[in-house]
């Protein structure tokens, strides 16, 4: 079993086609599979449906695919940081299916677990509930949401081994572990790549069964979207 590929382009070989659905991990610019996104941009595939909490920002993350006009539809929870997204959406060039953030996470979890639909209270009594089945359980109302899967999931992790076992760092974990379970094929980019046996099995977050291909991203960029610090102490 050889899951390791030399770079992002090699890891995506044979997987990309027009009209496919791609899940992309990350929250804002934190924990995104930067090199895999760049390789999808270079491959030039179009009419993509992309499932990701955000759409990157102008010039970074999924913003690169928006710039190149490769995305036809986003399934997201919040796209407010991206001007280009707003332009394309308001011009009718881009479809948006927006979800409450926890509903998005649970839809992906359900998809990865082979569960086609579930009921949640989130969104009941709001525009999110429009057109959805409502059922009452124990005197409370819930709406039905569908599980989500993708042709390809691309995720970022802090450390991985050649078996595809993944470990995450701080809030760069976010959607990555759940998306890894919901791709027909999951490709991971990891900051540190090790031989099997390096990690304590008790500390592995994503077991290698969920990851088919892996690349070592030594120098991926990490950016801060909203820089805020405590005031400098006054002398």
């Amino acid at each position: 079993m050889n899951k390791v590929h030399k770079d992002a382009t090699a890891a995506l070989a044979g997987l990309l086609r027009n009209g496919m659905t791609i899940m992309s991990g990350g929250f804002g610019l934190c924990g995104i599979p930067e090199l895999l996104i760049k390789a999808i941009r270079e491959a030039g595939v179009k009419d993509l449906t992309v499932i990701s909490n955000n759409a990157g920002i102008d010039g970074a993350g999924l913003g690169l695919l928006l710039e190149a006009g490769q995305i036809a539809k986003m399934i997201s929870s919040y796209v407010g940081e991206n001007k280009l997204f707003a332009e394309q959406y308001l011009a009718g060039k881009l479809k948006l299916e927006f979800n409450p953030q926890g509903t998005l996470a649970e839809r992906i979890r359900a998809g990865g677990a082979g569960i086609p639909a579930f009921f949640t209270k989130t969104g009941f009594g709001t525009i999110i509930a429009e057109g959805k089945d409502v059922r009452e359980f124990d005197g409370e109302s819930y709406i039905m949401e569908r599980g989500l899967t993708a042709d390809l999931a691309i995720v970022h992790a802090w450390k991985g081994d050649t078996e595809g076992n993944l470990v995450y760092r701080k809030t760069a974990r976010n959607f990555n572990p759940v998306m890894a379970t919901a791709g027909q094929v999951t490709v991971a980019e990891v900051e540190h790549l090790s031989e099997p046996g390096t990690f304590d099995p008790d500390h592995i977050v994503t077991p290698g069964i969920f990851v088919q291909r892996i690349i070592h991203a030594k120098n991926a960029e990490k950016r801060i979207e909203q820089r805020t610090t405590r005031p400098r102490p006054t002398p």
Partner: peptide, 12 residues
């Protein structure tokens, strides 16, 4: 507000 809708985590 002329923006695409986006609810984030508010409803949850």
């Amino acid at each position: 507000d002329g923006k695409p809708p986006g609810v984030g985590g508010a409803m949850d």
